[in-house]
């Protein structure tokens, strides 16, 4: 049993005034210990909801419609809030997008990290706690932790706050870390530092990570495997090499082609036509069909299943059906 996290046919819906929003639709994936899975997609594609639904951090109008979540061999799909409390922090933890709002403004950073440590070790002594907090701050690269731990979040810069959030997330030695766009709100140089930190910690602690982002550049730097999400579904999943050099889904092609690195020297950037569909009443067939220049007739009729490319690489597009016309990928790896 090497799968640390296994999600099967998960569907999550929000009930809103305009109807039921199917934010995550029939998603299956697994995560091995120590592995980094990047989840890529446009905003509103359900990547963040996916993470929060596994940790059960969604608001009360969200519901798991079907499917199962198995962590470390235990099926937690039906776990109540009380049971989840025992898992959070120890089994899995989360880092959020905006470090400016993720910390409580009226508590010292040290106290907030200490809180997280105490969850794991309730009986820890005062000096032990202090040492552990210092050690965590040191781990995430915060200089002079003894001084910094007495300070409030507003004394910290964005990058430092994100480091503090990581210290909090890592305080309980979690097996799985969910990182929800952890570098999106940061400057390029700070982003690079935080990504380095992620890799460092990955190497030191071997924490399995689900890394949510919309930036393919970031994905390339951190991911072992990549899942591409569109309109609540995983449309393609594979190792980083497979996705970057041998993508099969037209949506993945579109995303890569719209990167400026791909259009270097050209007059215009590639854009995917149209807009993502609303998830209240998704259209019949493949939801990407109306934006897909390679769409086949069957795309408007029936949803494509996950076609196997290799043992690690799957894509949900009818182009992979043996009856489909052969299409040459327009992105054969990006030449930078």
């Amino acid at each position: 049993m090497s799968e640390l996290l296994e999600v099967k046919n998960l569907s999550v819906s929000f009930s809103t005034s305009s109807g039921e929003v199917q934010a995550v639709r029939n998603v299956s994936f697994s995560l091995k210990a120590g592995e980094v899975l990047a989840v890529v997609g446009e905003s509103g594609c359900g990547k963040s909801v996916l993470c929060k639904s596994i940790m059960k951090l969604l608001p009360s109008n969200a519901k798991i419609k079907q499917g199962s979540i198995t962590v470390n061999g235990a099926d937690i799909t039906a776990y109540r809030e009380r049971d989840m409390c025992r898992l959070r922090g120890k089994l899995f933890s989360m880092v959020f997008q905006d470090p400016m709002t993720a910390l409580n403004p009226t508590m010292t950073v040290g106290a907030q990290i200490a809180e997280a440590v105490r969850v794991r070790e309730p009986g820890i002594s005062k000096t032990g706690l202090r040492d552990r907090v210092m050690q965590l701050m040191d781990l995430v690269g915060i200089d002079s932790p003894g001084e910094r731990m007495e300070q409030y979040p507003y004394h910290f810069s964005g990058g430092m706050r994100q480091r503090s959030v990581m210290a909090i997330a890592l305080a309980g030695n979690p097996r799985i870390l969910f990182a929800d766009e952890p570098t999106t709100a940061l400057d390029v140089t700070i982003q690079a530092q935080i990504l380095d930190l992620f890799r460092d910690i990955q190497k030191k602690l071997g924490t399995a990570t689900v890394f949510v982002t919309h930036d393919f550049g970031v994905v390339a730097g951190v991911a072992d495997r990549v899942a591409v999400m569109y309109a609540g579904k995983i449309v393609e999943i594979g190792t980083a090499e497979e996705i970057f050099y041998d993508a099969r889904h037209p949506y993945t092609w579109g995303l890569m082609k719209s990167l400026p690195a791909f259009s270097k020297g050209q007059d215009t950037l590639y854009t995917i036509p149209g807009m993502p569909p609303t998830l209240v009443n998704p259209p019949k067939g493949d939801v990407f069909a109306c934006r897909n220049e390679y769409a086949l007739e069957i795309d408007y009729q029936e949803e494509p299943p996950m076609f196997r490319v290799t043992d690690t690489h799957y894509a949900a597009t009818w182009l992979l059906d043996e009856r489909a016309p052969k299409v040459v990928s327009p992105v054969g790896g990006i030449k930078v």
């Binding site: 390029v188 140089t189 982003q191 690079a192 990504l195 380095d196 890799r199 930036d215 393919f216 550049g217 970031v218 994905v219 390339a220 730097g221 991911a223 980083a240 090499e241 970057f244 890569m256 990167l259 690195a261 790896g333 990006i334 930078v336």
Partner: peptide
């Protein structure tokens, strides 16, 4: 130079190659 070096490249092979010497 630092700013340019920090831009992530959407290519896992190259991204990995320049790890560490950033």
């Amino acid at each position: 130079k630092r700013l340019l070096a920090a831009v992530p490249i959407p290519d896992p092979g190259r991204e990995r190659a320049r790890k560490g010497n950033r």
